[in-house]
Every structure is written in structure tokens, then in C-alpha cells.
Write a protein that binds this DNA or RNA. Structure first.
Length: 500
RNA sequence: GGUUCCGUGGCCGAGUGGCUAGGCUGAGCUCUGCAAAAGCUCCUACAGCGGUUCGAAUCCGCUCGGAACCUCCA
């Protein structure tokens, strides 16, 4: 039996609000689209959480044996800072402020984004299409929607007719909103507005004279609307209906709602079977966002240079911290929580290097331990298959760490389980840590000269101990500790050290 | 105002009808010359008030408190 059938994945589908058993359109294959960043600024830690979530999800699908096509776009087209006509082109604005070409802005922040992804060990998607490379397709689908009577032109711009769409479909199916309420609440249509209803949204916008990013179209020079790029790129690379669409919770409405309307209107098919939304990273209970001024850049987190931070935290500590909560819950950021994560993660990381070094020797098999290890192995899969519950999976890995430490210290002998089970246990721990959760051992800054010097001191201390000169041996240990080096005496008289 | 979600032990966080995760902190024990590390044990909670049920942190209602979305946002 293969892993896909052995551990069927259930996931919370935002479209139905229920946990459902995942069934892919084509057996063994998964098509997943995730809304990527708008590259006019550095990505912050909150953004990173979303990409981490879908990184782990795609990793787990692959781990079970699915062939995954993971598409994550780059939004580089220069949408407006405001949805109305008053807004300014984000990328154009940044370009003016920094005196750069818009594509220099795009390049700079795309590079920054990729750097952050590498830092947190977030794997690249299979395809990373950019909106500016799909202008023709965006114009084509806009034409198609006009032909279908679901879009109208007004003064060089084209808008999606939500009311019309709602006559034959359900606008609001994803976010649970109803069209009447939407038309009543919110901002009023101002007199300048060309839209028939304020809930209508732009498929194509006419470019004002000073707008830098612009392309020719049947309606004159302009640029595509915010939502259409995702519809175009997901359809192009994954088909008119695909398995999973993901993104941050804050994109659910209106962005994803509009995507559903456009795609359904244009292709006559439900575009997505499962919608997944990852929740927000909060700071003191409030959403981390640029506008609130409570966002940190990953670089500020690592160096500890942000005023809200007591000290710096490593990328893997941060990754671990985020995986300790479920992706569908908000996660509150605090120094205390990060400090706890730092210690906890060190424990896992140490067990990881320990388990790699363990080997099996035959002995008398213990039924109780065998049963426990078998059950721990199965739990890893079961917890990940249960809506990608990384928090529960980590809890299992901690229990496995205790057993690993037992083997290392000799509390339990590896021979208490048979060789096959021992290897499975080893492989499960290593692969869930590294492949599924993407947690790597953090390589300490090993420096050959330093390592050599410490070894010399260790030899001196060994000599002092055999001479029962504990005053000297303790001094060596204490002084090294003060310098940030912790010596650990092993059972067999060997010593190891750890940099703090 | 509308829509939706949340409120778990000293702290962070899983859990969504019975079997009461895990981590961090604190206390104790074992090992150790002493430490560190490790192993074991303990401190055991579900905002409040009602209701449903043999049984509720988990379902329903109300109250209080917090958040997200309704405007760009991961």
C-alpha cells in the first residue's frame, strides 16, 4: 500500500468551511496555486508565514508521493495603492521615490523575496510566473468576459459586472457575503467613478498620462486589474479547474472571491476544488502589517535590530516557532515565545544530529518499546495528514527525541527493537524534520582554529581530571562557559562542546 | 454598522462530545567528583452564566473581552 492511500489527507476547505478528505483531480498529481508577493517593498515576517505554510503543504504532498505542480506568482504589474481611481501605481510610486525604473523596483524586491525564502528554507515553486509576462492573456480573458456580457467598458477601463454575474451564479460563495449587503455597506460610489455598482471591480484600467506601467489594449493604453492575473496564470499552468488555491486570509475577500467570479464567468467551470487560507501573524494581538508599523523584516529579526525585539533569532528558530501553531490560527509574536522556541528547537536539532549517528546492534527485543516506536512513526503521518497539523507532528518528534536520547545515553539499547524498526524510526525522524517540516540542523559557526584550540583545552582538562585536579578542570570549564562555550562530559570520559 | 473567527494551566500553543498534546519556566529525583546535557516525576487548564447529554474545553443560547474582513494587504 502506498503512502497516499495509507494516510489520506484531510484539509479544511474555506469554500465549504469543513474539513474534507482530499481527492486530487488526477490521481497522484496535485495542482496548487498560491498568491505571491507584490514586489514593491521588502517582504515582512507576516508574509513569510503564508509562504512557509504552503511550503510545508507542498513538501508533505511530495513526501507522500504526489507529483506536485506548485505555482506561485509575482505581482509586478503596478496596481493602485487604492482600489478607486484616486490611487497611485504602487510600483510606479516606489520607482519615483527611489528614482528607479519600475522594473528595477520589481527586480530589487523580487531578489529580496527570494533571499528571504532561501533563508527560511522555503523551497521555490515549480513555476513562478509574473503578471507582466501575461498581459496578452489578461487582455484575452477580459475580451472573453465582455463577449459573455459579464464585463463592460467605461472610458477606457473595463469592469466586471458583479450584479449580472450574480443572476446566474453566486457572488460571495467563498467569503459568505451577500451582494445586497455589499452594495449597501462600504464606501459610496463617488461621482468620478465609472463603475455601475461599487462592488464591480476592474479587469482593465485606463492609464493616466503620468502612469508609468502601461500596455496597449483594445480599450487604449492601460494596465490589468488586481484580480485577473491570478485567474490567468492559474488557468494557464494548472487548467480551468485545479486542486488547491492558497493564500493569506486577508486575500479571501475580495481578491479570491473575484477570482472565482472571473474564472467561472469566463470558463463556465468551478476553478478550484479546495481553497486554503493561512491565518495572520499578530504582534500584541494585532495583525502584522506595514501600515500599522508593527512589521519586522526577516533581517531585523535575525539581527535583533527591531525595537520590539530583545535579541536576534535564527531562521530555523523562527521556522520552528511558526510551525508550532496551526496555519489556520493566528499566531502571536513575542520575545518570550521566541526564546522558548529557541531552546525547544535546539533540543530537536541536537536529537537530529544524534539520531544520524546512531547505529543498530542486535539484542533482546522489547515489545513495549517496539510498540511505542511503531506508534510514534504512524503518528507523524497521521498528524500531518490531519490538515497539515505541524504542531501535533512536532509534539511527536519531541517524544521521539526522548527515545533518541535514551539510545544515546544507553538508557535503552538499540537492540531492544529489531533492525527494520530501528531504521524506520531513524528515517522517519530525519525525513519529517528535514524533508517535511524543512527544519535543518543549524550549523554552528565552526572555525577550524577555534575548534583546534578548544580541543587543546579539552585535553588539558582531561589530564587535570585524571589527576583529580578538580580546581583546574572546573576553572577550564567555567572560563570557557564565560566565553560562550559549554563543555559536556560524556559517560565514557569523552568531552563535547557547544557554542552558545 | 454588517460578516466571520477567537478567548485553554505561570507563559507559548495543540485538541472540537468520554481516552484530559507538546514546548518553555519552576520544583524534586536519577546519572555525574561537581556541573552541563539527558532520563523520570510533579505543578493539570479550558472567559463567565445558563442549557442539551449518561458524559462538554469540545454542541446550543446569552453576557463579557479580543481579533480579522467589509479599502491596499500574506
Amino acid at each position: 500500500m502506498n503512502l497516499i492511500d495509507q494516510y489520506p489527507i484531510s484539509l479544511t476547505n474555506s469554500l465549504t468551511g469543513k474539513k474534507e478528505v482530499f481527492k486530487s483531480l488526477v490521481p497522484g498529481y496535485v495542482g496548487m496555486y498560491v498568491c505571491g508577493p507584490t514586489v514593491y517593498n521588502n517582504v515582512h515576517l507576516g508574509n513569510t508565514r503564508t509562504f512557509l505554510t504552503f511550503d510545508v503543504i507542498s513538501r508533505y504532498f511530495r513526501f507522500l508521493g504526489y507529483k506536485v505542480r506548485y505555482v506561485r506568482n509575482i505581482t509586478d504589474v503596478g496596481h493602485l495603492t487604492d482600489d478607486g481611481d484616486a490611487g497611485e501605481d504602487k510600483i510606479g510610486k516606489k520607482a519615483r521615490l527611489e528614482q528607479l525604473e519600475p522594473m528595477e523596483v520589481v527586480k530589487r524586491y523580487t531578489e529580496d523575496f527570494h533571499g528571504v525564502m532561501r533563508l527560511f528554507n522555503i523551497l521555490p515553486p515549480s513555476i513562478e510566473p509574473s503578471a507582466t509576462a501575461h498581459i496578452i492573456e489578461q487582455i484575452e480573458i477580459t475580451k472573453k468576459l465582455m463577449e459573455a456580457g459579464l464585463a463592460y467598458e467605461a472610458n477606457g477601463s473595463v469592469y466586471f459586472d458583479v450584479k449580472k454575474y450574480n443572476q446566474s451564479h453566486h457572488y460571495g460563495i467563498l467569503s459568505g457575503r451577500n451582494i445586497e449587503e455589499l452594495m449597501e455597506s462600504g464606501r459610496d460610489l463617488d461621482s468620478q467613478d465609472e463603475k455601475r455598482e461599487k462592488i464591480d471591480f476592474a479587469l482593465w484600467k485606463k492609464a493616466s498620462a503620468e502612469h508609468i506601467m502601461r500596455w496597449p489594449s483594445p480599450w487604449g493604453d492601460g494596465f490589468p486589474g488586481w484580480h485577473i492575473e491570478c485567474t490567468v496564470m492559474s488557468t494557464k499552468y494548472l487548467g480551468e479547474t485545479f486542486d488547491i488555491h492558497g493564500g493569506g486570509m486577508d486575500l479571501k475577500f475580495p481578491h479570491h472571491e473575484c477570482e472565482i467570479a472571473q474564472a467561472t464567468g469566463a470558463n463556465g467551470k468551478v476553478p478550484v476544488n479546495y481553497w486554503l487560507h493561512s491565518n495572520m501573524l499578530t504582534v500584541n494581538g494585532q495583525k502584522m502589517s506595514k501600515s500599522l508599523g508593527n512589521s519586522f523584516l526577516p533581517s531585523e529579526l535575525i539581527s535583533g535590530s527591531h525595537p520590539l525585539l530583545d535579541k536576534g533569532y535564527s531562521p530555523m528558530t523562527t521556522r520552528f516557532f511558526m510551525l508550532q501553531s496551526h496555519y489556520s490560527s493566528t499566531l502571536d509574536f513575542s520575545n518570550e515565545a521566541l526564546q522558548a522556541s529557541e531552546k525547544a528547537y535546539r533540543r530537536l536539532s541536537t536529537a537530529l544530529s544524534t539520531v544520524k549517528a546512531l547505529s543498530h546492534t542486535e539484542g533482546k527485543v522489547d515489545e513495549g518499546l517496539s510498540k511505542e516506536l511503531n506508534s510514534l512513526i504512524a503518528s507523524c503521518y497521521q498528524n500531518m495528514s490531519d490538515d497539515f497539523n505541524t504542531a501535533k507532528t512536532l509534539a511527536v518528534l519531541f517524544e521521539m527525541s526522548s527515545r533518541i536520547n535514551d539510545f544515546k545515553s544507553g538508557n535503552r539499547k538499540t537492540g531492544e527493537v529489531n533492525a527494520e524498526l530501528f531504521t524506520a524510526f531513524q528515517k522517519t525522524y530525519i525525513s519529517f524534520m528535514e524533508e517535511v517540516l524543512g527544519l535543518q540542523e543549524e550549523t554552528q559557526l565552526h572555525n577550524n582554529a577555534l575548534d583546534g584550540a578548544i580541543k587543546v583545552l579539552i585535553e588539558l582538562r582531561k589530564k587535570a581530571r585524571t589527576d583529580r585536579n578538580y580546581a583546574l578542570s572546573d576553572k577550564i570549564r567555567d572560563d570557557l562557559k564565560a566565553a560562550g562555550i559549554q563543555l559536556k562530559d560524556g559517560k565514557d570520559g569523552e568531552m563535547s562542546y557547544e557554542l552558545e
